[in-house]
């Protein structure tokens, strides 16, 4: 910019959460986006294991994951509800369907995920040995869920496979469709959030898996996801930094601007590169498998969304 092009813009507008920079979404939306992605990952893993008939070999995915997915999604949705300014109107998401709004698609997808995931939660609970011994577990209604499980387990798994991927993509598409924010307005944000969500779901399952064979396959899958996520992040930064003037200025947020340190240190190095090294070494048998790698993946996934939402909304199309 030449000195003679210096521009100063002052405005009499001072709307809360809009000026001087947009801060309409606080911690609630990024935490929800993280939990939505995580649940998408859990649903994906569970569906694949059920469809490949590997329940015996991967007991954590088959027996524990469905018990976590729906309650975690419920907690995430509660945070989303907290973000609404007009909470009494929450039902309005279900009085229309807006084709161009990813948020509208998301609301309906979440409803179906709750239905299908809820049934999977209930029949998995019905089959849980310690639960069957409790007073509630002895109720005859649980027999019904066991019957559903026997008849429709694999059919429902097809549903959760598709719904899991849809849930993972929509959390990213939600930001990508907001064209006013150049940092979000990229076709790569959808895949980035999908892959990061699958990785978070895999990491949480890794934390719970006890059997070595199950853990190893999860680590292998996660390693693949981590490399894919790194590639997508680099493509996204590259495309933004070589794009329009607005893209260039948005990229500056993480290439020298306020969010540079947190993005590269916590998301890329601590959240992807360090766990990838730990995972490779544990697969080679050099270092023991610990909770560190999956914990870092989870923290990295959460920080990615916090940075994306905060940095992304604060920067628009300039003057």
């Amino acid at each position: 910019m030449q000195h003679s092009d210096y521009v100063e813009l002052t405005s009499t507008r001072l709307n809360p959460h809009v000026d001087p920079a947009l801060t309409v979404w606080g911690w609630e939306v990024p935490v929800y986006l993280f939990m939505g992605g995580l649940v998408a990952g859990l649903l994906f893993l569970y569906s694949v294991v059920v469809l490949l008939r590997r329940e015996e070999r991967y007991p954590t995915v088959a027996k524990t994951v469905p018990l976590l997915a729906t309650p975690l999604l419920g907690i995430g949705l509660f945070f989303l509800f907290l973000d609404l300014e007009f909470k009494a109107h929450v039902f309005r998401f279900y009085t229309s369907f807006q084709f161009y709004s990813p948020m509208s698609w998301g609301s309906w997808i979440l409803l179906v995920v709750f239905g299908v995931g809820g049934v999977q939660f209930l029949y998995t609970l019905a089959e849980l040995e310690p639960f069957r011994k409790t007073a509630i577990g002895k109720w005859s209604v649980w027999g019904l869920f066991k019957k559903i499980s026997g008849n429709t387990r694999r059919k429902l798994a097809w549903w959760t496979l598709i719904l899991g991927i849809a849930l993972g993509i929509y959390t990213g598409l939600l930001l990508a469709s907001l064209t006013a924010r150049p940092m979000w307005n990229s076709a790569l944000v959808g895949p980035m959030f999908l892959i990061s969500g699958l990785s978070a779901g895999t990491a949480l399952t890794m934390l719970l898996a006890r059997a070595r064979a199950e853990r190893d396959i999860l680590v292998r899958f996660d390693l693949l996801l981590v490399f894919m996520e790194l590639a997508v992040i680099l493509m996204w930064v590259g495309a933004m930094a070589h794009g329009s003037e607005a893209g260039l200025e948005a990229a500056h947020q993480i290439l020298g601007g306020a969010y540079t340190a947190v993005f590269w240190s916590l998301v890329v190095v601590a959240g992807l590169i360090v766990p990838a090294v730990l995972e490779v070494q544990s697969l080679r048998g050099k270092w023991p498998h610990t909770v560190v790698a999956p914990a870092l993946i989870l923290v990295g996934g959460l920080v990615l969304r916090l940075v994306m939402v905060q940095a992304g909304q604060s920067f628009g199309y300039g003057a």
């Binding site: 959460h17 809009v18 000026d19 300014e85 909470k87 009494a88 109107h89 948020m103």
Partner: peptide, 27 residues
Amino acid sequence: RDLCTGCKACMASCPYDARYIHPTGYV
């Protein structure tokens, strides 16, 4: 107003930052 949930997607999507949250909750 009756349909607005205050989700703020419109505020995040406006390149002119022309919207605000009314104290009642709608945008």
